[in-house]
Nucleic acid binder design. Structure first.
Lengths: 338, 338
DNA sequence: TCACGCAATGCAAGCGCTTACATTGCCAGG
DNA sequence: CCTGGCAATGTAAGCGCTTGCATTGCGTGA
């Protein structure tokens, strides 16, 4: 059998109209009389017609596809935000393509090209750090894009997010208030990750503000993974002069730290306090539940979608938007003891 | 400025060859002399040329895009498998498009159409349960597809996965061996989810095999979410005749149950045993670490990719493949205490 | 009754690429 | 020196859709 999928022309013939009319019935129904539209729709149904994506993209010069490049799909940090992003886009009839860069700048550029090659009309990017080539590419191809998950008033690029540094400082202030003086931090790798870097700076800000020497902060950098949080914590607990508080750059590292604490028989927060950042689902489940910073994932996702749609439509998206991240008090942060 | 992106023709002109030669240099380099190829590549670089996706898809009648429809992106059950799927595909120069159905058959059909409309050459599907319309659509459009995350020898459709029923029976056998007689189960919703259903059947199989009445199994069905696991567990603990073991259909529900146990001051596994299924990351992190069934996520993803590529290329993919799921013994399952 | 305007529809030119087929030019064998 | 064969390249016909512009036909006001 000649398994020829029905084309616009087949539909047109069946409905006894021109292809232009069929196209209009589908894409701009009010430009066609009700009677004609009904005939066309009937033909569409009978034939099981579906437009050819390639042809449509080629002719219309837009794909109604947006792309998002996130650092990782593995853990759920971006899941919630992306979900909201997606929901908002689908309201506009836009499909989302997701790619992950595995926290690698080279890979990010590659993914960016791949998404654009696949016809992405606009891009959602995470954080400000990326290669000049990436930005040059965006400029050159005039790709509408917004940066999310961070807000930095010193950057001109359109973005939506919160101030990582400020949020982390607020947490660290609290830690210091509780009397902690020997503080360590387990951070995600800061190279190519402005959010991680800002969080480290936030801690230092707090330390400095309290009159201590920020250089004294014991800092371990390690890739984003539970097991790494665990081994970093273990290393931190090895030496003499143990910290009484370990601030983690994210919940995943904190979860690892927490599990290692349990394995080592270290009581949290009795012997040492541990904090996270992000407030993803595991923060509530670990034992004890993690004190962390709640990040407005959904708002960022939704807001980013709105900015991007405006941009794509040639409208004015307005200025970058700053959201609030607030302390989520649970049970892993206590006063310093003895 | 006339921001005309370079086309094949521009490249051809610059390199002093025809568009056909440029196309060939890009897609079948060995059909072109080295000298010409170099000239072309130079022109491509100078112009920053990138092929137009729509045009390419239209002319070549294939997009090199595969689609995957998973029940949810929210939690990480499918993340690892999808990651492996993706890696294998990218080796073949294929891009992955992911859509989620939120466990809704109607949405699944919609997503399926959306993916195909966007040019997906082939589809990865989870589980066997879906509407007849879905299958009719796949048949009609002749979309290559494979079913993953389950293996059922009674189904003809090409699939890769493990036998959910058998795996759960093995776990339940173990539970019974440890002396548990009052058993409850918290299952994901079984409607439209053959995997969940099979897991319930597996528990019943075990109960029956041990000479007990499977009808006595206390069964709660609830949507996939930690909080639901918690409330289901709470309900189960309310009445008299508490179960001594609560088998959960997946790790997420088990994590919820576990956290509720802690809140209620119920010792696990001292007072009651809890088990999960899937062995996702949280299984290791919760306290105590969850005894569960390890599912070969990565193998399924990789294998599915291989089957699908073969299918798309018109090769023989061979028969469905059955993988093994094995018990992952941790700390939430203990002997029944009198 | 006649023109005029406007809504509905048709016509046909692309959109940028792939690829079957035609052409060219070169080399080896006779 | 001629010719068949083959590798390299060119020519041009679509692929299925959108859309600017042309055409049709109707209702309306003068």
């Amino acid at each position: 059998m000649d398994n020829h999928l029905p084309t616009l022309e087949d539909v047109a013939e069946r409905a006894g109209v021109s292809t232009a009319t069929v196209s209009r019935s589908l894409n701009a129904p009010d430009r066609v009389s009700a009677h004609t539209r009904d005939k066309v729709m009937a033909a569409v149904r009978e034939l099981g017609y579906a437009p050819n994506f390639g042809a449509q993209a080629l002719a219309a010069k837009r794909t109604n596809t947006f792309g998002a490049i996130i650092p990782t799909m593995e853990n759920a940090i971006f899941a919630r935000g992306l979900q909201a992003f997606q929901e908002e886009l689908s309201r506009e009839g836009i499909t989302l393509l997701v790619a992950s860069s595995s926290y690698s700048p080279e890979l990010e550029e590659e993914q960016m090209r791949a998404l654009v090659a696949r016809g992405a009309d606009a891009l959602l990017l995470i954080g400000h750090d990326r290669t000049p080539e990436c930005y040059a590419f965006l400029e050159h191809r005039q790709i509408p894009h917004v940066v999310a998950w961070t807000y930095d008033k010193t950057r001109a690029r359109l973005s939506i997010g919160f101030d990582n540094r400020k949020a982390m400082k607020a947490l660290a202030d609290r830690v210091l208030d509780l009397g902690h003086r020997t503080i360590a931090m387990i951070s995600a790798e800061t190279a190519g990750n402005d959010r991680a870097r800002e969080r480290v700076e936030g801690v230092k800000d707090a330390i400095e503000a309290s009159g201590l020497n920020p250089a004294a902060l014991r800092l371990v950098e390690t890739p984003y993974a539970i097991a790494n949080g665990a081994s970093a914590f273990e290393a931190l607990m090895q030496g003499a002069d143990r910290p009484t508080a370990v601030l983690c750059g994210n919940d995943v590292l904190a979860a690892g730290a927490l599990s290692m604490a349990r394995k080592l028989g270290i009581d949290v927060p009795g012997d040492v306090s541990i904090t996270g950042f992000d407030d993803i689902e595991i923060a509530e489940i670990v034992t004890p539940p993690l004190t962390t910073v709640h990040v407005p994932h959904r708002e960022m996702g939704r807001g980013a979608a709105r900015l991007l749609v405006a941009l794509r439509n040639g409208e004015d998206p307005g200025p970058s938007v700053e959201l609030e991240a607030r302390l989520e008090w649970r049970e892993t942060l206590g006063v310093v003891c003895g």
